[in-house]
Simulated scan of single mutants.
Amino acid sequence: MKSMRSPADLAINGSPPAFSEPLHVGRPNIGDREAFLARVNRILDNQWLTNNGPMVQEFEQRIATHLGVKHCIAMCNGTIALEIAIRALGLEGEVIVPSWTFVATAHALYWQGITPVFADIDPATHNLDPDAVRRMITPRTTGIIGVHLWGRAAPIDELQTIADEHGLKLMFDAAHAFGSTYRGQSIGRFGACEVFSFHATK
């Protein structure tokens, strides 16, 4: 691949493409096809395709064991998981979120009549800036949703201190962070709860 020097070097402007085929951000790593198909066959043989079947139960148990947590609940996607977690924590009024995150973090609040309040991020990490969070707290604030962006942990200790000082609930959107750690502990063990995503782009 040759280096690009100007917009004229882009294929869209008539230059030859840099890659022989399109590159897709969301193309998954399929892994062991035989092992995958064997599990699909087990699902079909059980004739249990939805509603807490044995494969879902095994998935939840294995994730909980891997993370060293008591509970793991599988949902259809990360956005719904955020909504359910927000309801479970009884959040209302205003909830502080980072100004730089995927829109689902804010949508999961807004769709439930909760106002997402956008706090500045640390430009070096792209995660919530604890000082900005402190500035955004009002009498209507009930919680903070930290986001572990790009697999890099949010400032967990600082956010937990702020939440404890103000009686706020703290949860994390950990969609980018399955397999990441913070000070030697797996992401998934912090705040009141954490939400992962297993979408292909994560």
Rank of each mutant, 00 (worst) to 15 (best):
1 M>L: 14
1 M>D: 11
2 K>Y: 13
7 P>V: 11
8 A>S: 12
8 A>M: 09
9 D>P: 00
10 L>K: 07
10 L>Q: 07
11 A>T: 15
12 I>Y: 01
15 S>Y: 08
16 P>H: 08
16 P>V: 06
16 P>W: 05
18 A>S: 12
19 F>Y: 13
24 H>I: 13
24 H>V: 13
24 H>R: 10
25 V>C: 02
26 G>S: 08
26 G>F: 01
29 N>L: 15
29 N>A: 10
30 I>H: 14
34 E>W: 02
35 A>E: 02
35 A>K: 10
43 I>F: 01
45 D>H: 09
48 W>D: 15
49 L>N: 02
49 L>I: 10
49 L>Q: 04
50 T>F: 12
51 N>F: 08
52 N>R: 15
56 V>E: 15
61 Q>K: 15
62 R>F: 03
68 G>L: 10
69 V>F: 07
71 H>I: 15
72 C>I: 11
74 A>C: 00
75 M>W: 09
78 G>I: 03
79 T>G: 15
84 I>G: 00
86 I>W: 01
88 A>M: 11
89 L>W: 00
92 E>N: 14
93 G>T: 02
93 G>I: 09
93 G>E: 00
94 E>M: 05
96 I>W: 08
98 P>S: 10
100 W>C: 05
104 A>W: 04
104 A>H: 10
108 A>I: 00
108 A>F: 00
111 W>C: 13
112 Q>D: 04
112 Q>W: 02
113 G>K: 08
114 I>V: 14
114 I>W: 10
117 V>W: 06
130 P>W: 08
132 A>Y: 05
133 V>Y: 04
137 I>E: 05
138 T>S: 15
140 R>T: 04
140 R>Q: 14
142 T>S: 12
142 T>A: 02
142 T>H: 07
143 G>S: 07
143 G>H: 11
144 I>G: 04
146 G>M: 12
149 L>Y: 12
150 W>K: 06
150 W>H: 05
151 G>S: 01
151 G>T: 11
152 R>W: 11
156 I>S: 01
157 D>R: 08
158 E>M: 10
159 L>T: 09
159 L>Y: 12
159 L>D: 12
163 A>C: 07
165 E>D: 08
166 H>S: 04
171 M>H: 08
175 A>N: 07
176 H>T: 00
179 G>Y: 03
180 S>D: 09
181 T>S: 12
185 Q>V: 09
185 Q>W: 10
186 S>W: 15
186 S>T: 07
186 S>H: 13
188 G>V: 06
193 C>A: 13
197 S>E: 14
198 F>A: 05
200 A>S: 00
